[in-house]
Simulated assay, not measured.
Amino acid sequence: MSNKVYVFKVFERFWHWSQAALIISLLVTGFEVHGSYKLFGFQNAVAAHTVLAWSLVGLWLFAIFWHFTTGEWKQYIPTLQKVDAMVKFYLYGIFTDAPHPFNATPLKKHNPLQRLAYLFILVAVGPMLWITGWCYIFYDNWTAWGWDQYLSLPWVATLHALAAYMMLIFVIAHVYLTTAGHTPMAHIKAMITGWEETD
């Protein structure tokens, strides 16, 4: 028997899908800028990547404001409770039709592994992307600002690409794990409607 619980508010769903669209677009344009393939042309990819990056900065600033004014920031406090149960579920429980060890509620929307993954994105991958990205954007000012003594463009490019690959791995894992609900589309449906079905 399952119950429906209203877990994700309208803004959370807007923020989630807008962020997803921006991050995927940044990956597509960024890997072209990095020289992985040709799709839009280098100059167009650079221009689009820059606009997308500033758009994501704006979205994140608004999301940070929203999370702190609503108290929703508490949803991301990491915990080690039930981490072992979540690891076992994702390693083999999914394949043996084991019950999910975590049910989302309005007060606890993310399981312990999600919280740890989001923390890693927030404190490691995100800052690495933003710092190296801003160094890229302001490359023409390095000499005037004295940054050219400390920064190397190949190193900035390598670190930016490394962080982008980590983000890509996160996106792939995130999309895969959305299929780990009681039906393959249950979690995706919850992020569209706001209603999570729980056992």
Rank of each mutant, 00 (worst) to 15 (best):
69 T>D: 02
88 K>W: 07
173 A>L: 10
115 R>D: 06
115 R>Q: 12
30 G>I: 07
40 F>A: 12
79 T>E: 11
64 I>A: 05
88 K>A: 15
57 V>Q: 07
51 V>S: 13
23 I>F: 09
76 Y>E: 02
191 M>A: 04
114 Q>Y: 02
171 V>R: 00
161 A>P: 01
60 W>Y: 11
36 S>G: 12
118 Y>V: 06
39 L>W: 11
127 P>T: 01
196 E>H: 08
11 F>C: 05
49 H>N: 13
14 F>Q: 09
107 L>I: 04
166 M>A: 15
3 N>K: 14
46 V>S: 10
11 F>V: 09
44 N>A: 12
22 L>K: 05
23 I>D: 04
36 S>N: 04
134 W>D: 09
171 V>D: 05
140 D>W: 06
102 F>P: 00
59 L>Q: 05
146 G>D: 00
192 I>M: 09
181 G>K: 01
184 P>L: 07
135 C>Y: 12
195 W>L: 03
189 K>I: 15
66 W>Q: 05
92 Y>F: 15
44 N>V: 14
29 T>R: 02
119 L>A: 13
163 A>K: 00
139 Y>F: 15
158 T>E: 08
52 L>P: 10
86 M>I: 13
87 V>Y: 12
91 L>C: 14
168 L>Y: 05
24 I>S: 06
184 P>H: 11
144 A>F: 04
175 V>M: 13
67 H>C: 07
190 A>Y: 11
38 K>T: 15
72 E>P: 02
113 L>N: 02
110 H>A: 03
80 L>E: 10
124 A>P: 01
27 L>K: 03
37 Y>C: 03
52 L>I: 13
188 I>Y: 12
100 H>L: 01
146 G>M: 01
28 V>E: 11
158 T>A: 08
93 G>E: 03
199 D>Y: 12
168 L>D: 08
44 N>E: 09
11 F>M: 07
168 L>T: 14
4 K>M: 12
115 R>F: 04
18 S>P: 03
166 M>G: 14
26 L>P: 08
71 G>A: 07
151 L>A: 02
99 P>V: 02
117 A>F: 07
45 A>R: 06
130 W>T: 12
156 V>T: 14
38 K>D: 13
190 A>Q: 07
163 A>G: 10
183 T>N: 08
86 M>K: 06
150 Y>V: 08
2 S>Q: 12
77 I>Q: 08
193 T>F: 01
10 V>E: 09
119 L>Y: 01
196 E>D: 06
84 D>A: 11
122 L>F: 15
159 L>S: 08
